[in-house]
Design a protein around this nucleic acid. Sequence first.
DNA 1: GCAAAAGTGTTTCAGGTACACCCATGA
DNA 2: TCATGGGTGTACCTGAAACACTTTTGC
Lengths: 230, 230
Amino acid sequence: MTTAFYKNKDTHLIAVDCIIIGFRDNDLYILIAKRQFEPMKGGWSLMGGFVNHGESINEAAGRVLDEFTGIDGIFMEQLGAYGEVERDLGERVVSIAYYALVNIDKFDTSLAVKYDARWVKMSLLPELIFDHNKMVKDTINTLQKRAAVKPIGFNLLSDQFTLPMLQSLYEAIYQESIDKRNFRKKILGMDILEKLDLKDKSSSKRGAFYYQFNKDKYDQLIQQGLHFSL
Amino acid sequence: MTTAFYKNKDTHLIAVDCIIIGFRDNDLYILIAKRQFEPMKGGWSLMGGFVNHGESINEAAGRVLDEFTGIDGIFMEQLGAYGEVERDLGERVVSIAYYALVNIDKFDTSLAVKYDARWVKMSLLPELIFDHNKMVKDTINTLQKRAAVKPIGFNLLSDQFTLPMLQSLYEAIYQESIDKRNFRKKILGMDILEKLDLKDKSSSKRGAFYYQFNKDKYDQLIQQGLHFSL
DNA sequence: GCAAAAGTGTTTCAGGTACACCCATGA
DNA sequence: TCATGGGTGTACCTGAAACACTTTTGC
């Protein structure tokens, strides 16, 4: 069904591009792939795809994320729309960008081969095609703001993590070092983490206790009008 | 020119919808119009239009803003993309929403007749078509966050304004009252306002001094690593 | 002279920041 | 026993919040 007023209006290709962030060994990583078609074939690119008629833009982003990572239930948020006329050299394409925070260990590595994809350190990001570098830059910016007021960083870790790991994650996000005692005071003071009896001995002889995020306690906190803030 | 890979991909109508905010008599207002075509003809709607092939989405938003307000150089920022499949009852339309902060006094009132538009108090917003109420809600949210860290509120006022006016503006944005002394201390302490010799006597016998925003001083502040924050 | 809004400082408190040492353990 | 990373408490300082009275002037 086409309503009269909508007739004769221009239509456009709509893409979703996903900035997929992972965390490993104290560094943030981004998943990029060698583009397998023209134009800019062989150039480094974010993970993307086109929006189909039958799916919402969120669904399209979810589909792309699933397709390129093999992980389900990924945390993602919309970054924004990029709509310069000449941004895509192939044709006029408006892109809706999403950033996603994933546990890099759950990544299906066979997909890296299939799509010629790899995780690169954010600090060593090569030149990407089109406006993808700007998308990444905007993501960092947004991530720094969002992670400061919402506990979204946990999506980058496994369910169980140590405080040194968590701290190093936030240091990677903010690109500055944080005082150990102050960090622990704040994060433990919120009472949203549960200490486990288990220790991670992979990075020290003494071992660091595992913790896990307690969403119930967090929701409770919010309901009381209090705020997560680092 | 069409590149092979882009062939056979679905194309979509892309709209821009503008949440146009004004401020008057201690209240925030939003510009809405009676929709003049089907579907939902006669329903209250935000100002919108379709994106043409030859223009960027920002340009499209600027065009719509100009068309419906008659004001040029309007402050606007992208709110985000809305892309549920059934969000527009006429046809599949992905909408990029922009919010704009305008000086309501510069509004070309003849356009209100032409488009059956009017300024309504934000607190008395009627039901709008499609997902437009959600767009407004998201705008308020974003505005509260943005106005706290960037001096964008000034776009809602004339070049010259009094401190009581400015305070009342922030009270409208945050929907809570602010202590006069603390507010003045903070805003004047930033040293981004210039006091004029002129007084506004329209709202009191004594009169309140006019001030104006000094962008140079603000830029200087930022360059020093300091921050605007209310 | 009084009503109505503009303007002005100080005290208090909470939260942020700076800072240094002991602990547990594998090698 | 020693090297390595994990864990802990306090003092200070800055910035936010609470709070009440005087000033101006048109009516």
